[in-house]
């Protein structure tokens, strides 16, 4: 994909939370293209339960940003029809685990329409999903559901870890010719960063090295990137140099950047919140091992969520991959050889 050329001539530097960056991206996309429409549950007057669509109905009118009945399959299915007929819908699933009623629409239609029609019907649409844990959410509000989408050919799956990336990746997702599942790490909604607008970042499908390091590579995406960065900071104080790779995009997967990083250090740990079994993290280990086996000094380790239903708020700290577990995994990378 190409990096979006933003038609909004802003060149200011602003301190933005990820939520504000996403809101700005939606606003700028709507201003740039009248075909962009937003809908979902509570996205109108309320501005979304996380306020990501705050002010957009007031600014662009109810036709462009509107509330729907509470029915996720209907929301995604209607978006399919609108995308078929000249629009660029951006729909919000209120929470990760509330998106499951739309699963059939996503798997059987959103993902397959281009292929089944030999490219004649494209679906330029974005499904925004506030996702993953770490906010003390109660049952059914904290699922890391990326593997379901990543396993489905025809979807792009994106997870930003910074406000700047949230802006850039969402703008690109909206202008992309294919459907994008856009996973917004809920616990990072309030994380802040100085952002230069318009944002210039690598496109969807490109991973970036967030921190240089020489001893081992931490591979993370979405909510686990700040965990990896913090672990690297602590490790540095203890004399170990950890490199951090932020995937940004799960599909397409950037084998080239990830493998180059792992080859440069010879050791790797994958950090992800989702349950580890049959997961994106296991796919990363498999891919990197297949391609980098001779460069590896130790088996790749994973620090993931346990294979359990997401725990209640007072127990969730056991489930989240924390800095200590990451550092323990790094310690296990056969340094004594």
């Amino acid at each position: 994909m190409t990096v979006l050329a933003s038609p909004v001539p802003k060149t200011e530097v602003r301190t933005l939370s990820m939520a504000q960056a996403l809101n700005q991206a939606l606003r700028d996309a709507m201003a740039a293209d009248p075909a962009v429409v937003l809908f979902g549950e509570d996205v109108g007057a309320l501005g979304g339960v996380f306020r990501i669509t705050d002010g957009l109905t007031a600014e662009f009118g109810e036709a462009r940003c509107f509330d729907t009945p509470l029915a996720e399959s209907g929301i995604v299915g209607m978006a399919v029809g609108m995308a078929m007929n000249g629009m660029r819908p951006v729909v919000e699933m209120q929470f990760d685990a509330f998106a499951y009623p739309a699963f059939e629409q996503i798997v059987s239609h959103v993902a397959k329409m281009r292929n089944r029609t030999r490219g004649r019907v494209a679906l330029p649409m974005v499904i925004r999903v506030p996702y993953a844990g770490g906010i003390g959410g109660v049952e059914h509000h904290c699922d890391s559901s990326e593997a379901y989408y990543a396993h489905t050919p025809g979807l792009h799956v994106v997870a930003p870890a910074t406000p700047a990336d949230a802006y850039a990746l969402l703008r690109e997702a909206i202008s992309a010719p294919d459907p994008v599942v856009f996973l917004e790490p809920k616990k990072l909604y309030w994380s802040k960063q100085e952002v230069q607008l318009p944002v210039r970042e690598p496109g969807i499908g490109t991973a970036v090295v967030r921190r240089e390091g020489t001893d081992a590579t931490l591979i993370a995406y979405g909510p686990s990137v700040p965990v990896a960065l913090e672990a690297a900071e602590i490790a540095a104080r203890e004399g170990r140099s950890l490199q951090v790779v932020d995937l940004r995009s799960i599909v397409p997967f950037d084998d080239e950047t990830v493998c180059a990083a792992v080859r440069s250090t010879g050791r790797a740990v994958v950090v992800a919140e989702a349950a580890g079994f049959a997961s994106v993290s296991s796919e990363i280990v498999a891919r990197v091992t297949e391609r980098c086996f001779t460069a590896l000094a130790a088996p790749i380790r994973r620090v993931t969520g346990f294979d359990i239903p997401y725990p209640p708020p007072k127990l969730e700290h056991f489930q989240l991959p924390g800095v200590d577990r990451v550092l323990d995994a790094v310690d296990d990378l056969q340094w004594e050889q």
Partner: peptide, 15 residues
Amino acid sequence: TQLPHAVGVAHAARM
């Protein structure tokens, strides 16, 4: 599953 698509096509046309 095609019925919500029909609604979307109709709604876009009406817009």
